[in-house]
Design a protein around this nucleic acid. Sequence first.
RNA 1: GGCCCCGUGGCGGAACUGGUAGACGCAACGGACUUAAAAUCCGUAGCCCCGGAAGGGGCGUGCCCGUUCGAGUCGGGCCGGGGCCACCA
Length: 848
Amino acid sequence: MARYNARESEKHWQAVWAERQCFVTSNDSTKPKCYVLEMFPYPSGRIHMGHVRNYTMGDVLARFRRAQGYNVLHPMGWDAFGLPAENAAREKGVNPREWTYANIAAMREELKRMGLAIDWSREFATCDPDYYKHQQRLFIEFYKAGLVYRAEANVNWDPVDGTVLANEQVIEGKGWRSGAPVERRKLSQWFFKITDYADDLLTALDRLERWPEKVRLMQKNWIGRSEGLRFSFDLSDGETVDVFSTRPDTLFGASFVALSPDHPLAERLANQNERLAAFVAECRRVGTAEEAIETAEKEGYDTGLTAAHPFDPHRKLPVYVANFVLMAYGTGAIFGCPAHDQRDLEFARKYDLPVLPVVVPEDAAAANFGIGREAYIGPGRLANSRFLDGMSVEAAKAEVARRLEAAGKGERAVHYRLRDWLVSRQRPWGCPIPMVRCVTCGFVPVRESDLPVLLPDELEFRGAGNPLDSHSSWKHVDCPQCGRPAQRETDTCDTFVDSAWYFARFCDTHSEGPVSRKAVEYWLPVDQYIGGIEHAILHLLYARFFTRGLHRLGYTNVDEPFAGLFTQGMVCHETYKGQDGQWLAVDEVEKRGGKAYLKGMDVEVTVGRSEAMSKSKKNGIAPEAIIDAYGADTIRWFMLSDTPPERDIEWSNEGAEGCWRFVQRIHRLVTETADLPPLGSRLDSAEGASLELRRSAHRAVAAVTEDLEALRFNRAVAQIYTLANAINVADKSVPGAVLREALEILVLLIGPMMPHLAETCWHSLGHEGLVVDAPWPKADSDLVRSENIRIAVQVNGKLRGTVDLPRGTDKESAEAAALSLDTVSRALDGKPPRRVIVVPDRIVNVVV
RNA sequence: GGCCCCGUGGCGGAACUGGUAGACGCAACGGACUUAAAAUCCGUAGCCCCGGAAGGGGCGUGCCCGUUCGAGUCGGGCCGGGGCCACCA
């Protein structure tokens, strides 16, 4: 019999599925719905192993749900705006649009070769005018609803990518794409008012039960809620300054007030004081880079002003401008209580300010409780604090708040770390922000009838700056309000805006409006979203915000876009470095006798640790090459095998070979089994080997179903191997009908994972229809539960043997059976058992 | 610095709410088939000790302690690895 020809088979079945439109999904169905979505790719031009893993998992789930009788939506699109297209344009002189669409065409073919059960009729790219015109409309609607505003702010400027970035896109002080240290610039930019939903985005996390705990925690920390008191100090110059504190209980321990260098008062003072101006400039220069923060010493500049203590106006606190106070958090000003805050302590030690403990641990006497190098932040009783003395921290917080509120000097407040989402990008390959700047009218939205604001066909990438800005005609338009000459906004949207609502567009890609209310009511939320953990905050937070915005505008009835989230691990491989310290590609290296050498040479190569496949480390394996060699089913099976899906997986050629052998083995098992009875033959009551085979098959159905429901693909794979091992074609005692049942179950179970092989085998078993149309098999519960159970017998907790007993054997009989074992009596050594623990159907433990 | 996660054979990993640790796969080894190789099939395999063998015994889930008839699983303390955030008042 011929070996399985994956290339031909896969091509054939892909054509059959396409021709019969198997995966085109209707929005009108009586079946229960299931929306399965994987994070859509950036069209770089090539799929990589990460895509293969991600899309395989989603595809298995989509096919599995489909077989279970769901109406499944499983679409695909392209996150197509972004800098790589601009870089290609600059380097190769191509048009970014043409480059992008060519990449999409190439990647679509590669994805199709994977045999994904995708409804390609819903495909779109975010750079399609038909998509971004809706986004422009949404931008204007968000603007009118008060969810978009323009403001001047200190923003993160990425000097390499030549654009500003949102807070979420600055990782360790560096731009998320370029890795360049970001600079601070004061610019006027567009913001989405995500902070409107700070509280809701936080509290709703608790209800996202099918999200990984880790992601919820990361979002929680990012939103960063803190409760405290905002109150004001009267200054010696007659002004006041607002501060925020989560520890108002420590107010009597205050020894200074500190302003952020960016605080308006600090800036005003700096205007009249050169040395202060120099200090402020120095603080800004050092910036927020990680190393800078770690090593930066607390520095301050004494403004000469003093602040009156709110409860003791005679007590005057010096007012500093300090480098460690952030304008972006709270009010940009603090009171310093060195005894109970480490930063304040360091600052106080440096400038020789008083350190007065006001919270004393329960077990220490107030008189001899001192502060050394460590601030005390634990619980205790208030001391040195007049009317607060003796109170707990919590009671003192409440009392301070009560008194300051009563005096009209302050109020309880909640602050968030989360900042509004800065979406302006000074880049040409993005969705144009549909606003016009008019000298008389200010910023005015583009009229709806003038949408979309299309990008110009040609863009000049010479020189610095945004080509949309330097374009000869593009930005010149008349003001939509007064008709006088005006200028377009030349900034485009952050590409994370594009991906913040694409899942809603998939529900109905022909909708006249941005999204169809009816379609999203049917499909949203996404039942299972799958993607990388790297979007734990960025994309997933933006999408949650955007969905709330859509809800406010009446487009949806849900707040949460993704009911279930799964974050898959990365695909890793060893790294190699040559003697010059440069990275070497995997195909430049060969292994001989446990060592790595340059291919065909005697030059040894350094083997580095296994890391996520990446271009820069050259440790990637091209999926194309693997599909060429073994076919899509093999690479899919590899991605599902062995490693739990949330963990990083190590690519290995041996593993891939093993998968390929299994593909062949299944094919042999099915096609080389002669004289099976016809379809639908009756199964007579089985016993012996054939009963065991029936049991194995039905147990596999039960186990694989359970594992796929829980996305435990690696366990499902192991169950399938176990079933394949149990099928012994040569055993003539097993009737053909039993063998047929086992083989059919095997084929149906591999269906979602190795769909092409399954179709070939299904056909070979005599079926006219397709596996994709066959219902998921049902396990016979009588066959899943066995009559006899092997029970462990222990003496003093140590295993001494096993007994096979009928299910449900009573304690007495189980005990008797256990005690009759030779190994048990030997272990007892003539001593009578003191106690016998019997857990029915589980274990017998004899205690002496 | 704060918060969180993870330590099981040579490797990836399995073990339901405490109940036979190592399923399944990879790699390895022995054998069969073959002129040979590939492919395939059968078999072995946590570690150590006793025995010619059949077999028997001990130790084992990072380390220590505890709870329990019984701990990979629960609690406490260490050690090691990883992640996220990071001067957040």
